[in-house]
């Protein structure tokens, strides 16, 4: 986006200058600076999320407003352990969010299952088994600064998207949401058994 001064000539109709931009840059600027959050808080990371939203850290100044309504939200922050009983509700809430939508996996439990990775009968090992995730934040729980940084990173990511050309960076929505990672693991196994060159290409 570039701001230019008014051109020479009759100036009485042009009182405040002209902004030149592209549709994509304007849309991404608007989207990146008004990320309304659907807090999917299920465990202690939600406490840290609340601390981030309160006055000491105050991430409202980034335009990121917590809003307990999936139909009005842009970002789902999965803050906490997702169990197999909670999983259908997470997917349902994600599906209720209007496009474009992004997901932030906050904390080790939402990233990979965390300390419940081994020997747990009930915990989903990472919320990306259910829904496509844009930003991962490590930590148990992460500091509020890490969550703020995640939104700045997400804003950078949104800047690279293009509404006009249809470029989105979220994962493939044609995959079934449940079992999404199993399909990816199957793909990796197939790549390992293939030729070494093609495996390298798959990795790169």
């Amino acid at each position: 986006m570039a701001f230019v001064s008014p051109p020479e000539g009759p100036r009485e109709n042009v009182s405040a200058g002209i902004a030149l931009t592209s549709v994509d840059a304007l849309l991404n600027w608007g989207r990146g600076h008004s990320l309304w959050i659907m807090p999917m808080g299920t465990a202690c990371c939600a406490i840290e999320f609340m601390a981030t939203a309160m006055s000491k850290f105050d991430f409202d100044r980034h335009g990121t407003v917590p809003f307990i309504d999936p139909r009005h939200s842009d970002v789902m922050v999965v803050a906490g352990t997702i169990t197999r009983k909670m999983a259908p509700a997470v997917v349902r809430l994600y599906e209720q969010m209007p496009e474009p939508k992004w997901v932030v996996a906050m904390g080790n439990c939402a990233v990979s299952g965390g300390i419940f990775y081994y020997d747990s009968y009930s915990v989903i090992r990472g919320v990306d088994e259910l829904i496509p995730v844009d930003i991962y934040i490590a930590g148990c729980p992460p500091r509020p600064e890490a969550l703020e940084d995640a939104f700045l990173q997400l804003r950078n990511k949104i800047k690279t998207e293009s509404f006009v050309k249809g470029v989105r960076h979220t994962a493939d929505h044609e995959l079934p949401l449940l079992g999404h990672r199993k399909a990816a693991a199957h793909h990796d196994d197939a790549a390992k058994t293939a030729e070494p060159e093609s495996a390298e290409e798959a990795c790169s």
Partner: peptide, 25 residues
Amino acid sequence: MFLPEDWKGHPLRKDYVDDNIIRRP
């Protein structure tokens, strides 16, 4: 109480088996 209605078995029994569990190395 805590598990889904269609859950098979009772997980805190010592002989509970579940394919989803990854055993700790």
